[in-house]
Design a protein around this nucleic acid. Structure first.
Length: 365
DNA sequence: GATGCGTGGTC
DNA sequence: TGACCAAGCAT
């Protein structure tokens, strides 16, 4: 089949299929560009089911771009808390302020301007342009890469620049043959519900299976081709719940890097094959601790892209906060912007102290 | 182009 | 249950 016929048949089949098979999602109630942008930012590397409740809460709190522009960063982060990749929230707020400072009250249909905003990369700009403004700008995400790597039976990694350019060319050609806002979402919807990863794809339900080169060759389970994923390194770690006269010790993470600007209880990631107890010793030395520590027998796994940490929790009592830490009352502790894994650990400790009446936070005599 | 950035779900 | 996945972006 020649390319032109491929594009025409794909546009027709996907339009029909999307109109009858699209899911009802909260960000599909209208095509307001701000609402589309928020959904796209939240959906970056995040599953639809997880985004739903965050999206609803966000829209209630920051219903318009101007309301977001006038919000404080703390309020924005609090609303994003638990969703991960927090630079997305900071960027979204900055972008809203830049739009406002440009004298606008809403996002303009201007690729160059949108691309200049923080947090809006090639994919997100494509999504806003095509979905909100109905412009034929392709939005290439993981779903679309997978769909096209199969349609074209691409033998090389579609995430590489060459593969992405090829996919963008085909996607743009198809968008021009129909409604870009329908077709962009159709590519993604197909990837999310039918053309799913590995051997789980549902080819019998696919509206474009007869156009699919991988289906014809039987290679759909091996697409997209790509490099082996990195192994996640597993390590131990130690965390400390330090009881102070009026609460417990927390510290603020530096700006930039992991959990930028968030609060945390003191903790330390172990070296390769280091025991949790050895981590505790190093942590105690770092904090210049001179008191005995009690093993609370509580653990939590912190998961990251390249490593995960089995974090063991100890407690101790001190008359004043150690170096680098501040004192905070325990009732304020739970409301603090704190990474999800650490917060789970703290909550476990609070529950345990309640059950066993450990007087974990009673004043030092 | 490679790496850092969170979190929770799936099989 | 461990490996992989989920609508990327900035540096």
């Amino acid at each position: 089949m020649n390319a032109e016929k491929f594009h025409i048949e794909a546009a027709e089949a996907l339009t029909v299929w999307y109109n009858s098979h699209k899911r009802d999602l909260p960000w599909r109630l209208d095509r307001d560009p701000y609402r589309i942008l928020v959904s796209e930012a939240m959906l970056q590397q995040t599953q639809v089911e997880r985004v739903k409740s965050f999206y609803a809460r966000w829209m209630e709190r920051f219903p318009t771009l101007t309301s977001l522009a006038s919000a404080s960063e703390d309020d924005v982060l609090a609303c994003w808390q638990g969703l991960g990749y927090y630079s997305r929230a900071r960027s979204l707020r900055k972008a809203a302020r830049l739009v406002r400072d440009a004298g606008l009250t809403t996002l303009p249909p201007d690729w160059e301007f949108l691309r200049s905003l923080p947090g809006l990369g090639p994919y997100t700009v494509g999504a806003v342009c095509s979905i909100a403004f109905d412009l034929p700008v392709p939005a290439i995400d993981g779903n679309v890469r997978r769909v096209f790597s199969r349609l074209l039976d691409m033998p090389d990694d579609p995430a590489k620049a060459k593969g992405t350019a090829l996919i963008a060319a085909h996607a743009a050609a198809i968008l021009k043959l129909g409604s870009p806002h329908i077709l962009t979402q159709a590519f993604m919807e197909l990837g999310a519900t039918v053309c799913t990863p590995g051997a789980t794809c549902r080819c019998p339900q696919c509206p474009v299976s007869r156009l699919c080169a991988a289906k014809a060759a039987g290679t759909q389970g091996q697409r997209p081709a790509g490099p082996r994923k990195n192994v996640v390194e597993r390590r131990n770690g130690a965390a400390l719940l330090i009881s102070l006269p009026q609460g417990c010790a927390v510290r603020k993470r530096p700006i930039g890097g992991l959990w930028s600007g968030f609060c945390e209880i003191p903790w330390l990631r172990g070296e390769e094959k280091e025991s949790a107890f050895s981590c505790l010793s190093r942590l105690a030395a770092e904090l210049r601790l001179s008191c005995p520590c009690t093993d609370l027998k509580l653990e939590e796994t912190l998961k990251f892209t390249r490593w995960q940490v089995r974090l063991h929790l100890w407690s101790c009592r001190m008359p004043q906060p150690p170096a680098g830490c501040d004192e905070l009352s325990t009732d304020k502790l739970i409301g603090l912007p704190m990474p999800a894994g650490l917060k789970r650990l703290v909550q476990k400790a609070l529950e345990k102290s309640g059950e066993k009446q450990l007087e974990l936070f009673s004043p030092v005599r």
